[in-house]
Amino acid sequence: MVRLTRAQQQERNRAAVLAAARDEFAERGYADAKVDRIAERAELTRGAVYSNFPSKRALYLAVLLDSLDPPEVTGRGSTLADGLGTFARGWLERLPLTGDSPAGGHLRSRSMSGVFDDEPGRAAFAQVARLEAILLGLALESRPPNVVRRVRLAELVLTVLSGTGHLAEKAPGFGDPFDVIRACQHLAALDLGDAWDPPHLPFVPPAQAVREAWTPPGTLPDLLTGEPAAFGGDGVIAVLGTGRLSAAEEAVRAAEHVTVVVVTNDHAELGRLVRLRLGDLANCLLPVFGPPRPRVVLDDGRVASAVQVRDDDDTEAAVRVEAGEIVARAAGRGAAHAVGGSTRARR
């Protein structure tokens, strides 16, 4: 009889919990699923479940993450309208099928209904949605005609698709998905008068000019492409908590080479939420538009430590790296924009 190491036993228990949880959520849905039944299905104790996943919400998110396929990074050339249609088609593929049970349909669509119903969770979810719209908007801006901003168009497209998903959960079979695809294509011609000029930016103090040695903290996977993102080159590193993700656009509008580093003090739930939502976005985005900018990574503590900032959900800080040195840093509201507009020559 082969004796498993502690690590091997932990991994086996984790796999058993995930498989049991997937069956429980598929049969009963998130709200009615019980950790005790999941433990029974896995033939483990309740304590063994919680030693791997600290909450039912963390376990549900882990099950959804486990269902994600790696994105296809092709970036097929297309017009803006065709690109939006293809993006919508990919998004709609995960909607519940006719005959799916309500619980099974929720799991297939990776539904968040009733999952983040507390105020901190709702606030974080809203910020993640804002980051999704920014990333999609930047991808749309890569298609002609050239415009300053398409984030509001991205928000509208995501609103249409999200509403379609919610309706599919409540009234499966209602409406024609191809009508939704055509509607998203037609949105490309809608002039929303989109401009980017946040009112607080004129009041943001300039970044602090510094000269500090920079020690790159290794690599972390890009949440969109899965490729390793290194920190040895020049550019802006924006460290944003899950409550400040909308500030990513401030860095992108001010600088060309940007890495958004997401930090959180709740990796089990909020960290998984970020990974899940951006993974889902990547599966629809990358086959059509290719990798967008900026790179986005989820910090494991190393980047925040190297930048010397807290890894809290309300963190908003940024540094500019040039020639192996940190040449500018800022913290607080508008930090990414302040650092993005700074250069070594301005010190």
Rank of each mutant, 00 (worst) to 15 (best):
V2A: 09
V2K: 01
E11F: 04
A15H: 12
A16V: 04
A19R: 15
A19S: 14
A21E: 00
R28Y: 09
R37P: 08
R41P: 05
L44F: 06
A48L: 04
V49K: 15
S55R: 14
A62S: 13
S67K: 11
D69N: 06
P70I: 07
V73H: 10
T74V: 14
S78Q: 03
D82N: 10
R94A: 15
L95E: 13
L95V: 11
P96L: 05
S101C: 01
R108A: 12
R108W: 11
S109M: 13
S111K: 07
D118C: 07
D118L: 12
A123W: 03
Q127R: 15
L135S: 06
L136G: 12
G137N: 06
V148T: 15
V148H: 15
L156E: 05
V157K: 00
V157I: 13
E169T: 04
K170Q: 13
K170P: 00
F174H: 10
D179W: 12
R182F: 01
L187F: 07
D197T: 15
A207M: 11
Q208I: 08
A209I: 02
R211Q: 11
E212L: 13
P217T: 09
G218K: 12
R244W: 01
R244H: 09
A248L: 13
E249F: 12
A251G: 09
V258S: 05
N265T: 14
R272L: 07
L273M: 12
D280C: 12
L285A: 06
R293L: 10
A304F: 08
A306W: 08
D311Y: 01
V319T: 04
A338D: 05
R346V: 14
